[in-house]
Design a binder for these strands. Structure first.
Lengths: 249, 249
DNA sequence: CCTTTCAGTGAACGTGCGTACACTGAAACT
DNA sequence: AGTTTCAGTGTACGCACGTTCACTGAAAGG
C-alpha cells in the first residue's frame, strides 16, 4: 500500500490527497454574547485556534502511528508525516521539536492504553482462577483493539532511538512495580518485596511476548494463544506459590 | 539532459580512514609447483582471490554488526558500511544483493551463536537444580560474550525489515521446538506435546527478556539479574510440575 | 603466453531528507 | 479599530542515499 505516485519534478511534495484541515468557509455563528470579551465564542460549527492546533497534533500522532507500522520510528521521516497529515513539512515544528519528541508523546499515549487495560482487570477480583481467566481475555481484547499502540510499544522497545527506548523501559518498570503491589494483595503469605518484583517481572515478560504474538497472529489462532497464555500464567503462579513454600518455608 | 551539477564538489565520500584491504605489494612466493595446474598456490604470505573476498565479506558483516548497534538495521546504509569497511559503495554489491540480504546473513550467524550456547548447556545434565544453575550462568556468559549477535537478534526481532523479522521469528520457533524435545527427556511424567510447547515457549520468553536486560545492564548488576533469572526459571519449572499433576493428574 | 574472470574503482544521476528563512492571513487580544 | 500572535506556506539549500555504468588491474586458467 501507500504508493502515492511519486511524480518526478523536483522538491514538490504536492497533492496531499488526504484530509486538508484548512478553515471551512462556514462563518462562526455567534449566538448571543452579552459578555463582550475574553469568552471564547462557543458555537457548534466554529473552531478556535487552539482547537484546530490540537486537531492537527492529533492528526500527526495518528499519521505517525500508521506509518511506523511498516518501518518503525527509525524509518519515519518528518516529510512523510507532514504529507500524510496534509501540511507542509516545516509546519511540523509548530507541534514537535523533532521526531524523537513525537516518539515520546506516542510512548506516553500508548502506555495510556495499557493502563486502561489494567483498570479493566482490576474491576472486582474474585478467585485466583478467575483473575487469570479475565486477565488473559482482557489482554487479548485490548491488544486487538489498540493494536496501533501495542504495536508501537513492541517495536520501539528495542527500536532505533535511545530516548524513546529508554522511555518505554521506564514505563515498563513502573508497570512492573504496580503489578508487584497488586500481587501483594493476593493471599501469598509473607513474600518479600524482592520476590514479588521477580515474579511480576516474569509475568510482564510473558505478557509482552503474548502481546507480540497476538499482534501478528491470524484472528483464528487467537483461541490457541489465549489458551497458551492462560496456561502459562497458571504455571507461573502455581510455581511461585509452591517454590516459595518449598524453598524458604 | 539537464546536467545541472548540484554544487561544486557534490558526491565526494572521500577519506575512508579505516583499514584499506588492497593488495599488499608483496609478491606471492610460489615454492615448487611440480603439478602445473589447478592447485591453488598455497603460501604463507599470499592470499587467493576467494580468500580475500571472504575477508571483505567478513569485514562487511562485522561493520554492519557494529553500526546496527546504534541505529538498528533500519538505519543502516550501504554507504556507511562501505565507508567503515574501506571499500567504495558499489563494491558492496559484489557480496550482497541488498541490505536485507546482509540482514539475513546476520540472522543466520547470530543464531549460530545461540546454538553454540545450547550445546554448552547440554554438556552433561545432572540434577534439575544444576541444570537451572548452569543454564542461567551459561546464558549470562554467552550474552556478554557475543553481545553483538544477541543485540542484533533483540533489535531485529521487532525491527524494520519484514524479511529479517520473519527470519528471526522462524529461528525462535525452531529453537522453541528443540527445547521442547529436550524437556521431554526430563523426568516429567507423560506430558503432551502441546503442553511441552507451551512450557518451552514460556521459558524462551523469559530467556529473551533476560538477555535483553543483560545486554543493557551495568556489569555490576549482573549477579542480581542472574539471581532473578535463576529464580524465575525455578518458579516456572516447579509450577509446571505441580500444575500438571494438579490439573490432569 | 594470452584470455577470461571479477573484486574493487570513480564519476554521475535522481531522490528524499532535515532545516533555514521570509511570508501570509485569520484569530486573539488590547 | 489597530496590533500582535502564530499555525501553516513556499522556496531554497546542502547532504546522504541507492543504483547505473564504464573502467582497471591482478589473479585464475586455458
Amino acid at each position: 500500500m501507500t504508493a502515492a505516485a511519486t511524480s518526478g519534478q523536483a522538491d514538490r511534495d504536492v497533492t496531499p490527497n488526504t484530509v486538508h484541515i484548512r478553515t471551512p468557509k462556514r462563518r462562526p455563528v455567534v449566538l448571543a454574547t452579552l459578555t463582550p470579551v475574553t469568552v471564547p465564542p462557543i458555537s457548534p460549527t466554529a473552531e478556535s485556534r487552539s482547537e484546530k492546533k490540537e486537531r492537527t497534533r492529533r492528526a500527526i500522532l495518528d499519521a505517525a502511528l500508521r506509518l511506523t507500522e511498516d518501518t518503525g520510528l527509525a524509518g519515519l521521516s518528518l516529510r512523510q508525516v507532514a504529507k500524510e497529515v496534509g501540511i507542509v513539512p516545516t509546519a511540523f515544528y509548530r507541534h514537535f521539536d523533532s521526531i524523537d519528541q513525537l516518539g515520546l508523546a506516542l510512548v506516553e499515549e500508548s502506555f495510556g492504553s495499557l493502563r486502561a487495560m489494567i483498570r479493566d482487570v482490576r474491576q472486582g477480583t474474585p478467585s485466583l482462577g478467575q483473575i487469570v481467566d479475565s486477565s488473559v481475555s482482557v489482554l487479548v481484547d485490548h491488544v486487538r483493539d489498540q493494536h496501533a499502540h501495542f504495536g508501537f510499544i513492541a517495536r520501539e522497545r528495542s527500536g532505533g532511538s535511545k530516548v524513546v527506548r529508554d522511555a518505554v523501559r521506564r514505563e515498563f518498570q513502573l508497570f512492573e512495580r504496580e503489578l508487584a503491589t497488586d500481587l501483594a494483595r493476593l493471599p501469598m503469605d509473607h513474600w518479600s518485596a524482592d520476590d514479588l518484583r521477580i515474579l511480576s517481572n516474569l509475568i510482564v515478560s510473558a505478557m509482552i511476548t503474548t502481546s507480540e504474538e497476538i499482534l501478528r497472529a491470524d484472528p483464528r489462532d487467537l483461541p490457541d494463544i489465549q489458551h497458551r497464555a492462560r496456561t502459562q500464567l497458571l504455571m507461573v503462579i502455581v510455581g511461585a506459590l509452591n517454590w516459595k513454600s518449598n524453598a524458604s518455608g
